[in-house]
Amino acid sequence: MQLLASLFLPTYPDPPGPKVVSNAVAVASQLGAKLDAAVINVDIPDVSNALSSLLLDLPEKIREVNAASRKRGKALLGTVAAEAARCNITLTSQELRAQPAFIGEAAAGEGRYFDLCMVGWARDTESSRMTAEEVVFSSGRPTLILPGDEDVGALDHVVIAWDGSRVAARAVADAKPFLERASTISIITVTDEKVLPSEDIGDRLAHGLAARGLRVKAESIHAVDNEIGAALEDHAIRINGSLLVMGGWGHSRIRDFVLGGATEGILSDLRLPVLMSH
Rank of each mutant, 00 (worst) to 15 (best):
P16Q: 10
V136Y: 03
V167P: 00
A106R: 11
I145V: 13
G32V: 11
D14P: 00
D151V: 12
G247Q: 11
S128H: 15
I160V: 09
S139E: 08
R141F: 02
L56S: 06
H278G: 14
V20G: 05
A211Y: 07
P18K: 13
G250E: 12
L77S: 06
E95H: 12
M130Y: 12
V224R: 13
G164D: 01
D149M: 07
R72A: 13
G120A: 03
V216D: 01
P45F: 11
L96H: 04
D43Y: 03
L77E: 06
T143S: 06
Y113W: 03
A154F: 12
A154Y: 08
F257D: 00
P147S: 13
D225G: 05
G208E: 04
E227C: 08
M246S: 09
R170T: 01
S183E: 09
G241V: 01
F137P: 00
P142H: 06
P177I: 05
I266K: 07
L275Y: 02
A5P: 04
G241F: 02
Y12K: 10
I239P: 02
S186F: 12
V258T: 09
N226P: 00
L196C: 02
G261W: 11
R112H: 11
G140L: 08
D46C: 03
A236Q: 11
I221D: 01
L232E: 06
A108V: 07
G241Y: 06
D14H: 14
R253Q: 06
D163I: 09
I40L: 15
W162G: 04
V172W: 05
L3S: 03
A210E: 05
I254T: 01
L243T: 05
